[in-house]
Computed example of a mutant assay.
Amino acid sequence: MSTSTKAITNFDLFSTKRPYCTQEHDMFRTTLRKFMEKEVSPFLHEWEENGHTPRELFRKMGEQGFLCPQVEPAYGGLGLDFGFNLVLAEELNRIGGGSNGAGTHSSIIVPYLESYGTEEQKKKYLPKCVNGEILSAVAMTEPGTGSDLANISTTAVRDGDYYLINGQKTFITNGINADLFFVVVKTDPKAIPARKGVSIIMVDGDTPGFSRGRKLKKLGQHSQDTCELIFEDARVPVANLLGVEGGGFYILMNKLQQERIIVANNAYALAVEMLKSTISYVKERQAFGKPICSFQNTQFEIAEMATELSLARSFLNDLAIQHMEGEEITTQASMAKWWVTDMARRMSSRCLQLHGGYGYMEEYDIARRYRDVAVMPIYAGTNEIMKNIIAKNLGL
């Protein structure tokens, strides 16, 4: 066999090998994949139809040790590195659906508490976040405010040892299932600049004056519970303030690097599954007496998408290592977030087209993934905001 033939044979576009992964990471992936195939895959269609993922799933995930793998043993966790969060993200998005809420909880929201919570707050909440007794949500977006977080209108007014919170939030991931909400509020509406008046307060789901509004109907991600939140003189102890008053914007910005790396990995994992299923389909589907994969157009489309996927994987591997080493890579994380999510969105259309009429049918996963990927360039900071950040950091 020639060298070139060996190179082709050994190329694995869909390999789960990562430079930061050890045998322990691989074991975690294998165990989690088996869990997902047993506990999620058989029921996903039903959950999509119902528009809801059962709360019990997250308790099971906690019992099996899949939630918040990074939390220190002192608070009930395993103290594992960020690589485990990336494995979690990939495996959740490999199947998709509302189970992705576990990744948001584990890798995006709980780290706020780990980094900025008091010892009392950590002891109270972290063990339950790890074992699945608590599922978390972050409440930033409002009906009139999206990317411009400094100008939110939800207020928290000090009343002795409590805050009285008033306002509304919308598009809240995990909103129905969550037990603990990290609510972004204005504690000083007159602050200049406005961002210095932003704080984060943790609100328990059974707080008087707090209620869940409508469960929102979405274009995609149907089994991911998303809803409105309503605060009407919700009375929350001052002890539930995360960090310091006026420090909320800083907390959010400081964790966005990790969030955007996670979201980019989510998009990558979804893109892998789209391309994998498309390659399988074009090999089996016949047209004009031969497989669709034999047509040059199909081959070129697949070749282009495979190249983009490989480039994304290399970039994400590099960013993961830099992030784990504590490097400041805000610009690169912003690049990854916009480019990989945009790539995945483009790929969804290309893969659906290669499925032909069957791609439009709900019995094929590409239809669901086509819908689900559409929001990725929007949340965690729109891709337009990502480009603004990149341009600013380039001195423009």
Rank of each mutant, 00 (worst) to 15 (best):
G395D: 02
R195W: 03
A336H: 06
A312M: 05
L113N: 07
E232G: 00
A137K: 01
V71R: 05
V375T: 05
S136H: 12
R346A: 10
A367T: 08
P377T: 13
G326I: 07
H323F: 11
G248F: 03
P377I: 11
T16A: 10
T173G: 14
A333K: 09
C293R: 02
D159S: 13
E72F: 05
G51E: 01
V203Y: 14
V184H: 14
N131M: 08
Y360F: 11
A367G: 01
Y163M: 01
E72P: 00
E228L: 04
E142N: 03
M36R: 04
G79E: 09
A303T: 08
L92P: 00
Y112P: 00
H45W: 00
M324V: 04
G356P: 09
E328L: 02
R158W: 05
A239S: 15
S211C: 12
Y370V: 13
G83K: 09
I200F: 10
R33Q: 06
H355S: 04
Q353E: 09
D204Y: 04
P189Q: 13
V87L: 01
S280Q: 12
E384Q: 12
G77P: 08
H52T: 06
G160V: 04
M376H: 14
Q221M: 12
T22P: 07
M253P: 00
V40S: 04
L88V: 11
A367P: 00
E363M: 13
L57F: 08
E304N: 13
K60D: 06
A102F: 06
D161W: 01
V185A: 11
K124C: 12
P377G: 10
S15R: 05
P69Q: 11
N93D: 05
M253K: 14
L256Q: 14
S4D: 08
T53M: 13
L396W: 03
M361C: 13
E325F: 00
R369D: 00
N254R: 11
